[in-house]
Simulated assay, not measured.
Amino acid sequence: MNTLTGVVPPVCTPLTPEREIDVPSLTRLVDHLTDGGVHGLFVLGSTSEAAFLTDRQRRLVVETVTRHVDGRLPVLAGIIDMTTPRMLDQAHAAATAGADAVVATAPFYAATHPAEIARHYRLLAAGSPVPVVAYDIPAAVHTKLPAAVLLELAAEGVLAGLKDSSGDLAGFREVVAGVRADPGITGFSLLTGSELFVDAALALGADGAVPGLANVDPHGYVRLDRLHRSGELGRARAEQERLCALFGMVRVGDPARTGPSASALGAFKAALHLRGVIDCPVTAHPQTPLAPGEVEQVGKFLASAGLL
């Protein structure tokens, strides 16, 4: 796999009121993102609610997106699961459905040692039909991928890249610096999963970004990426600050009744519904849906950003 650069949104998964995959809305969302100029698509990540989907629904998402994209953009598929054998099953299913690469977390449920994490990725790479990108998301799997392990696996050619959703900019910097310093590591994609410091990550040497908010405003993140690469750093910073303000929508959910993930995903889907991209803004069970007043607040964020 060639090095991924630019904006690779983690695609939301539109659902019907019955919580089945809304295929027409999903294809419209893909068109919304490609029209925004994105450089790739990441399905079945956290923003895609992959953990809430059945295996049948996961396959349908990958098949729908890859068929609709038809090779115009690379499509990465998350294989988030508890153990190595289950992730290998997911990798084969994703590759069969047309994914160009898979994005894999560390195993979770049981606590793992760094040596076991390294073995996990080696086994995945040996058994996967497509390249494997590491997914560092300790908030979800309760394990931080050690920089030393990532650099060792990158040097061996086990991993094709890293999607860093740890929020640890210093740790990401350590990996970026290590990759850039080793001439033996080539084609390794360094992607930040943050919405809020894409400009800082690019300045450190990141290849691109996987921001969930890019579902709502793909043009904004593509513009930020272009401005930074063209050296217009002041304008890039201003665009990043605009997107940071828009990201405030993720906190509209009342914490007395809604978890932070449900609030964020509900806000993204409400925004896509308000913008006419998807038919229904529901999130997967058991997440609490946004209340009408909270959806109204999402609309105010969109209006302030010039998106309504």
Rank of each mutant, 00 (worst) to 15 (best):
L41D: 05
A203R: 02
I79R: 13
L4H: 08
V7N: 07
G234Y: 02
G293S: 10
Q240S: 05
V65M: 15
N2G: 02
P211G: 02
P85F: 10
V75I: 07
L243E: 08
P146G: 08
D199G: 03
I80F: 08
A177V: 13
F52E: 03
P218G: 05
L60P: 00
A99Y: 00
A170F: 10
K144W: 06
A271I: 03
G208I: 10
A256P: 01
L308E: 02
L307T: 04
A97C: 10
I185M: 03
G248W: 08
G45Q: 02
A181L: 05
I21G: 05
L29Q: 00
Q90H: 13
P9D: 06
A236E: 13
T84D: 02
A305R: 06
M1R: 03
L191G: 02
R242G: 10
A148M: 06
E232R: 08
A118H: 04
T96V: 11
A206C: 12
P9M: 04
I185D: 04
G187L: 13
R72E: 15
P255N: 07
E156K: 01
D164L: 03
V222P: 04
L145Y: 01
L41S: 00
R72Y: 15
V23R: 06
A140D: 05
E296N: 13
L308G: 10
V102C: 00
A177Q: 02
T66H: 08
V11P: 00
L44F: 08
S166P: 04
D279M: 05
R58C: 09
P183H: 15
A256R: 12
Q90R: 15
D225R: 00
A271E: 02
V75L: 14
D164K: 04
D100W: 08
H113W: 13
L302S: 01
P183G: 01
P9E: 03
D136Y: 01
P183C: 12
D81G: 09
P107M: 11
R19H: 09
A284W: 03
P85A: 14
S165V: 05
D70E: 11
S128V: 01
T143A: 12
L145W: 03
A264W: 07
D254F: 14
E49P: 04
C280S: 06
L307P: 02
A270S: 10
L308M: 09
D207A: 12
T66K: 12
G231V: 11
S263D: 15
F108W: 10
L76Q: 02
A160Q: 01
P218H: 04
G212P: 01
A93K: 05
A267G: 11
A267F: 11
E20P: 01
K269R: 09
V132G: 00
I137Q: 09
G37K: 07
A106I: 14
V130T: 07
H120R: 03
G178H: 11
